[in-house]
Simulated scan of single mutants.
Amino acid sequence: MDTYFACRALRGRALHRARTLAILIVSLALLPLANAAKLEPDTGKSALPAPREYVLWYRNYDSPAIRALVELALGKTPEYGDFRLIRSEELSQGRALRELADHQSRLVDIANVATTEERESFLTAVPIPVDGGLLGFRVCVVLPETLPRFEGIDNLEDLRNSNIRIGQGSHWPDTPILESNGIRVITHSRYEILFGMLRNHRFECFARGVSEVLYDLEIEKDPDLVIEPNLLLAYPMPSYLFVAPGDQLTAHRLQLGMERAIHDGSFAEFLRNYYGAAVAALGLDRRTVITLDNPYLSDESRYVSRQTFSNLRRRLDILSR
């Protein structure tokens, strides 16, 4: 079953797995002590430990798919104890990652964002693409009156010559990827503001991931925003769960939970439930694919991305069934 290249990729990185396994064994060895019932001083009765609270970045918490995946991974690891997810404050992506890196205020414990080599250097990544790699496949949200500008675009050179501007978040890794491929990008630090900028003709295309665009438009509820029907921008950009650099226990719990979900088939079911309809509705198999290079990946994530691209057709066929 094509569930997953990610699992094979993990096992193909021996050094990373050895380090992870060593720390995980130590963590699991300590769990019986951490989860042992505490004796009340007078009665001798055991008191149940309070659920561990995890603060999930608000953009992920508000996304039904990402929240469901985090709950799936945590739920697959009952030996770590009960848990409760909490919505973070409304922080920009850049601020959320800075808070996660510092982790003194505990404003964020878990965030799902696209990976870069830099992010993997100062945060702890769980290197399994949360959406099967679909975030790197982008369609354009546009205004109906600009649709003619997209006609006749068949390759990257056509896109460059069209002078179409693409809107993206200033802290998103998509921005330097698009710019490095010669595409003009207009940015803002807040995701919500970008829709208003599109309406005000500040740019022609708000490029959104296949795994997120239908949810975006459902939230916006604006009939004047449409999805351009013919183009698919494709670049390797795995989307991972990230935790604080010293929070190895949470990282191992999430990774173990996701690996168990991959093995028992529940991860594949998650992908079909949350992304299958989008793959079918967007007609990805009928679109012109414009492939872009991503020079900002670590070696491990580049390996994962190669697997993503090589299995693209098969994965899309499975998700659209």
Rank of each mutant, 00 (worst) to 15 (best):
D247S: 01
L74A: 02
I290Y: 07
P32I: 04
E157F: 10
I86S: 07
I193W: 13
R160M: 11
E300K: 11
A29L: 12
E145H: 14
N112A: 15
I153D: 05
R253W: 00
R287G: 06
G152D: 03
H263I: 09
L28H: 11
E79D: 13
S27M: 15
E212L: 03
R306C: 10
A251I: 07
H188Y: 14
L271D: 01
E90C: 12
I183A: 00
V185Y: 00
E192L: 10
S211Q: 08
S298A: 09
R11Q: 14
D62V: 02
L159Q: 06
G182Y: 01
L31A: 01
D158M: 08
N294A: 05
D154C: 07
S189K: 11
V185F: 01
G246D: 05
P223H: 08
H252Y: 09
D293W: 08
V139M: 03
R286K: 13
Y191K: 11
D224C: 11
L282C: 03
T146D: 15
F267M: 01
S305K: 04
S92N: 08
E99W: 09
G75C: 02
H188N: 15
A234W: 02
R287N: 08
R87P: 02
T175K: 14
A36W: 15
L143Q: 13
R260N: 06
S301A: 15
M197A: 07
E218M: 09
K221W: 06
G136N: 09
R184T: 15
L178P: 05
A281V: 09
V141R: 00
L10Y: 03
P32A: 06
V26T: 15
T308P: 02
L231D: 03
E118M: 12
S310M: 11
E218F: 07
S46Y: 15
L56I: 07
F206D: 06
E228D: 07
S105L: 14
R184K: 13
R13H: 15
G182K: 02
A14R: 14
D131M: 04
Y240I: 01
E53L: 11
V213C: 05
I262W: 00
I128F: 00
L100H: 01
H252M: 13
L319V: 04
I166H: 08
L232K: 03
P236C: 01
S92T: 15
G196H: 09
A251V: 05
I227S: 04
I177S: 04
L217D: 04
L233K: 02
A6V: 00
V139L: 10
D299L: 14
D2F: 15
Y61V: 01
K221A: 15
D247M: 00
F309E: 11
V108G: 03
R313T: 12
R67F: 07
A9K: 07
L21R: 13
A22H: 12
G246I: 05
R286N: 12
C7R: 15
L30E: 10
R302K: 13
L147D: 05
L69G: 01
L85W: 03
R199V: 05
T3M: 11
L214F: 06
F195M: 07
V141D: 00
A207P: 05
H103M: 11
G283L: 02
N163M: 11
V243K: 00
L107A: 12
